[in-house]
C-alpha cells in the first residue's frame, strides 16, 4: 500500500517532479496563465500554439476554474478551482505513450504493481471549436490523466497535430498520499520542523468564498455588462485585424502591421468572456434560449482569433520590411495609431 512508503510526494513535490521530468524531455516550462481559464487547454500556450506548422513542446501548471463545480469546500472530491499539469507535444513523438508512462515512474508509481488501462475518452469543447481523440488513463480504477490527440482547434484543422496530456494533480496526489479528501492532501512539509501544510490550509477559504460569490453574490447585471464590454473589445480587435488586409495603401507595410497586431490581447478578452459566461451560468442567469446563443458568441470570438492567428503566423514580414521597421525605430512605431475600428 502507498502508506507503506515512508514519505509519499507532497503536492508541491509532485508538481516539481513532473515539471522536471518534462523539462528534461525538452519542454519549455511555462508558468500558469494569469487570466481565468476553465481548463489548461484554454491557455494560449495550448490554444494558440497548437495552430500552425511550428513544432513546440511545453509543460505548465494551470489552475482551472469552473464556477459551477464549486461545492463550498464541503465535498471531498469536487473543486471550483483545480490544478492541472498540462503538456503539449507538437508533433507527438511515435513513442508518446511510452514517454507518458515514464512520467508516472517519475511520480514514484511502479507500474508493475498497478492496473493500467487506456479507456476511450474523446474531448470536445464547443466554446473553443476544438476537439480531439484519446483516452482517460486509468490507474487502479482512478482517472489520472486525460490523453488527447488534438484534431481541430478554433475550427481549424491541425497540421501537425499535437498530443495533450492533462494530469489531474489533486487526484494523483490524493492517490499517492492515500487520503480520502482533497483537503487532506499534504501540500508541503517543512524539511526542518516536519510541519505539514495541507491543501485545505492553502485553498479551503478560496473554495468557500468563490462558491458563495459564484452561486449567490455575483451581480448578474454587471457580469453581463462585463461580458458585453469584453466581447465588443475583442470583436473590435478582430475587425481591425481584418481591416489590415483591406487597406490597399498600407500594403507595403502589411506584413509588419500584421505581425505587431495584438491578437494575443484579443484572445485574453475571449477568455474573459468565457469565464464570465461560466459565472453567469453558475448563477443560473442564462436562460435556455440564451444559452446556445451565448456559447456561439464566445465560439465566434475563439474561431475568429484562431483563423487570424494562423494568418498572422504565415504572414511573416520580409527581410526588407524588418529592416525598415528597425530604421523607423521603436518609439515612432509605438505612436502609430491602430486602425480606426479599434480606437473608436
Amino acid at each position: 500500500m502507498n502508506s507503506s512508503k515512508p514519505n509519499p510526494l507532497t503536492f508541491q513535490e509532485l508538481i516539481l517532479r513532473l515539471q522536471t521530468f518534462w523539462a528534461e524531455r525538452g519542454c519549455v516550462l511555462q508558468q500558469p496563465y494569469d487570466v481565468e481559464v476553465g481548463a489548461g487547454t484554454m491557455a494560449p500556450e495550448t490554444f494558440l500554439r497548437v495552430l500552425g506548422p511550428k513544432p513546440y513542446k511545453v509543460a505548465y501548471l494551470q489552475p482551472s476554474r469552473r464556477p459551477a463545480d464549486g461545492r463550498y469546500g464541503e465535498n471531498p472530491n469536487r473543486l471550483y478551482k483545480h490544478m492541472q499539469l498540462q503538456v503539449i507535444l507538437k508533433p507527438p513523438p511515435d513513442n508518446v505513450q511510452e514517454i507518458y508512462l515514464e512520467s508516472l515512474g517519475a511520480m514514484g508509481i511502479e507500474l508493475r504493481q498497478h492496473d493500467l488501462k487506456f479507456e476511450e475518452d474523446n474531448w470536445e469543447s464547443p466554446t473553443l471549436g476544438a476537439w480531439g481523440i484519446g483516452w482517460q488513463v486509468m490507474l487502479d480504477g482512478l482517472e489520472i490523466t486525460q490523453f488527447t490527440y488534438f484534431q481541430q482547434c478554433g475550427g481549424v484543422d491541425l497540421g501537425p497535430i499535437s498530443a495533450e496530456l492533462t494530469y489531474g494533480l489533486e487526484r494523483i496526489a490524493a492517490f499517492l498520499q492515500d487520503v480520502d479528501s482533497i483537503y487532506d492532501i499534504v501540500w508541503a512539509r517543512d524539511p526542518e520542523t516536519g510541519q505539514v501544510t495541507t491543501y485545505g490550509d492553502v485553498r479551503l477559504a478560496d473554495e468557500l468564498q468563490f462558491s458563495v460569490y459564484n452561486f449567490e453574490l455575483a451581480d448578474v447585471g454587471r457580469a453581463w455588462k462585463h461580458f458585453e464590454l469584453c466581447e465588443a473589445e475583442c470583436k473590435g480587435l478582430l475587425d481591425g485585424y481584418a481591416a489590415l488586409s483591406q487597406e490597399k495603401s498600407a500594403s507595403d507595410g502589411l506584413a509588419r502591421n500584421k505581425k505587431r497586431f495584438p491578437l494575443l490581447a484579443a484572445y485574453d478578452l475571449c477568455l474573459k468572456c468565457s469565464h464570465l459566461f461560466n459565472i453567469l451560468d453558475a448563477r443560473g442567469a442564462i436562460s435556455v434560449t440564451e444559452r446556445v446563443g451565448v456559447i456561439a458568441r464566445v465560439r465566434a470570438l475563439a474561431v475568429g482569433i484562431a483563423k487570424a492567428w494562423v494568418d498572422q503566423q504565415q504572414d511573416q514580414p520580409t527581410a526588407a520590411e524588418e529592416e525598415e521597421a528597425v530604421v523607423q525605430r521603436a518609439p515612432k512605431a509605438k505612436r502609430e495609431k491602430l486602425p480606426s475600428a479599434v480606437s473608436s
Partner: peptide, 11 residues
Amino acid sequence: QGVIRHGHERV
C-alpha cells in the same frame, strides 16, 4: 500485495 485492490476500493 493488495495494492491494486486498495486503490480500487479507495476510488
